[in-house]
Design a protein around this nucleic acid. Sequence first.
DNA 1: CGACACCTTGAAGAGGTTCAAGAAATGTGG
DNA 2: CCACATTTCTTGAACCTCTTCAAGGTGTCG
Lengths: 241, 241
Amino acid sequence: MNVQTIKVACANCNLRELCMPMGLNPLEMERIEEVVAVRRKIKRGSALFSNGEKFTSLYAIRTGFFKTCIATEDGRDQVTGFQMAGEIIGLDGIVNEHHTCDAVALEDAEVCVMPFDRLEEISREVKALQNHVHKIMSREIVREHGVMLLLGSMRAEERLAAFLLNLVQRLHARGFSQSELILRMTREEIGSYLGLKLETVSRTFSKFVEDGIVEVKQRHVHILDTEALKRIVNNNQQACL
Amino acid sequence: MNVQTIKVACANCNLRELCMPMGLNPLEMERIEEVVAVRRKIKRGSALFSNGEKFTSLYAIRTGFFKTCIATEDGRDQVTGFQMAGEIIGLDGIVNEHHTCDAVALEDAEVCVMPFDRLEEISREVKALQNHVHKIMSREIVREHGVMLLLGSMRAEERLAAFLLNLVQRLHARGFSQSELILRMTREEIGSYLGLKLETVSRTFSKFVEDGIVEVKQRHVHILDTEALKRIVNNNQQACL
DNA sequence: CGACACCTTGAAGAGGTTCAAGAAATGTGG
DNA sequence: CCACATTTCTTGAACCTCTTCAAGGTGTCG
């Protein structure tokens, strides 16, 4: 276990706005810092937690990139999300006190460990934190609704376009480019998330390149025409007008 | 607005085990009853809340059956879930203080209205309630992971089999038959939930009937062979053994 | 009883998958 | 640091599942 005992200061963390509530007074801020126990480093390819494991903590990603996925006995496998700095993972474990998915680092990563019993305790005292936790969980529910829409009603091009737009949007919110990104996951993982086979993902990338919408060099993607991507997502059919 | 001002007693509600925490002392029980403001009746076909509406409350379903769905400007539509007695809806509204989906009654229904600010307030005092709220939200996240697996990796027969098994299981937990159920939704709504066209749903039902797995008379479904359904869900490929 | 919503079934077609082969990138060990 | 093994990605061709379009049947409600 890569557990480090560096004492943490959320007040100085540049991800504060992403993973902690805003507008706290100093007293509340102090209380909130007690939520984060330690930090933990996770090597690329290894799991932060796995299906079946006892649930103890939520994790705020400080650096790195994760995927969460569920695997069934019969060999099915589904990536349920990709998470980046400032996002919280582990919410699945609350209900049964055991995790129901795997969280795997797609690059070397570091997370802030937030023991859930402590989080609940401080939530009871700091109203803003309580509400923040509720919002994080609600946000995840809404995000998943969006994925259901994607999986239930979009065609391959629409799915990949929506995926790329979502990624750059989140990266941009973290200060990265609006048009360039490096994929941390394989075509197969993208496919699993989007309900497509890796070949279809690859072909769809090629199609976008042909159409001059993106440039793709392996995992490096340069978006040339964001509007085109948006049009692809929104244009399933204008028929009903 | 069909708002009734019947004062509610969770203590006497037979759904208590489904929507409220267990093992409370009388004092806590009293506090918890303050969560439920009033009950509200919703006629078949009308909405409990709609996309864009201000979020104020969560709702515990007392009687009736709902669907939640999201509709986009470009005409896409996705049923994100079907909810029955004892289940909680409205969680999507917390994050932005506005609902992001529609909740429509598929039969005349009654819900307990739980103003969210009051729920948060009492959650801060009653530990068991706080944890309960967290678990309800986590359960919804885990449920949606399951839907993502279904939409992302299952074929039509597998989806419908999983759907039927899920429905009877939930109905059974409420004291109904393990083998007979009445569908409250149309083929189109089932299809929307499962990412299939209504014709495919219909055909797949017919296939199941041919194979002697179920009897179907319109919305009345009699499951003859539960094991066969389970086999369909789990047998995507044994190849990897 | 008639209108409307819902369901079923058929036939043709499209989109995505599967299987297969080869190319490019990445990582590892000597 | 280079060579080799491995993983990842791309592309083609055949196939299959689900969709689309169409028509007719069934059930329900005013």
